[in-house]
Design a protein around this nucleic acid. Structure first.
Lengths: 144, 144
DNA sequence: GGCAGATAGTACTAAATCGTATAATCCGAA
DNA sequence: TTCGGATTATACGATTTAGTACTATCTGCC
């Protein structure tokens, strides 16, 4: 027979969690000067392109619940990193946009992320990144 | 010039976080009958092979701090899923081992994880999994 | 043998996160 | 137009997670 016991096999999910925690840890340590939590870093990183987003859109991008995001955004707003506006055409939706200080922080975050990815992934074969991307995409959209 | 603005590039780290949250969500929903939190599921999954581990070893495997793990293990111990013993030769270290009910839960968890990975990754090219594994390994061990 | 520094784990306290319930707004059908 | 259900975001309370300080134990060196 070909397959081993399920218990001794490598698991993509467990490796995923290890990698997420490890990288988040390193990133937070490098950005300690910004005095932001992991969720705040994540939110700003996703807003870094300057496009405004609603709370729902941002929640889907960062992977946190809307209820959690409310607290995170409260803190970022209090610090002057983001503003809460309304989206034209839908008065329910709240449009999150970066202030100039938020844009600055977001740019530093993206730079730190890019550096970290560079350090970690530079030695891998050419198509490894493409495969990583495809696999993460597939996992993110796994049918329940 | 070859490289685009850093802000418009795909980020492995952000994709990693999305994938982690999404898969964890689906997994927790499928295992709702076990009434366990994400950390507890993660801890049990890492213990599923039946080998005992110290708190430090388990912490490294699941990616949570020892202080967090103490609470998680408190809950698992209270429920009778694990026991805390001592490791022969080092009276500081605490050896975490599964009880039979813990072993049962861990097996169900591993099965659910294997199913989920199967659903998500089955359509990918052959070497995608190997590349995923290598990339996650590299990210986990990124030099700070 | 005995001391100094390092390591393992936990209590305590503070912070972040999530789930439930709620108000406002939108959309489609009659 | 107007009503009912769906969607958007938030407040509040409860749980989970993390940081700091501490005790117990080990390891190497004298």
């Amino acid at each position: 027979m070909k397959s081993e016991s399920v218990l001794s096999e490598w698991s993509a999910l467990l490796a995923l969690q290890r990698a997420t925690h490890a990288t988040l840890q390193v990133l937070a340590a490098e950005l300690v000067d910004l005095d932001l939590t992991a969720s705040e870093i994540n939110a700003l990183a996703n807003l870094a392109d300057g496009r405004g987003r609603t709370v729902s859109e941002l929640g889907a991008a960062v992977g946190t619940r809307p209820t959690t995001l409310t607290s995170v955004l409260d803190r970022l707003e209090r610090r002057g990193h983001i503003t809460r506006g309304t989206r034209p055409g839908d008065r329910r939706a709240v449009l999150i946009e970066l202030t100039s200080s938020g844009q600055l922080a977001a740019t530093m975050i993206r730079q730190a992320i890019a550096d970290l990815e560079h350090r970690a992934l530079d030695g891998l074969p050419d198509d490894a990144i493409a495969h990583l991307r495809a696999a993460l995409q597939a996992l993110t959209e796994v049918p329940s």
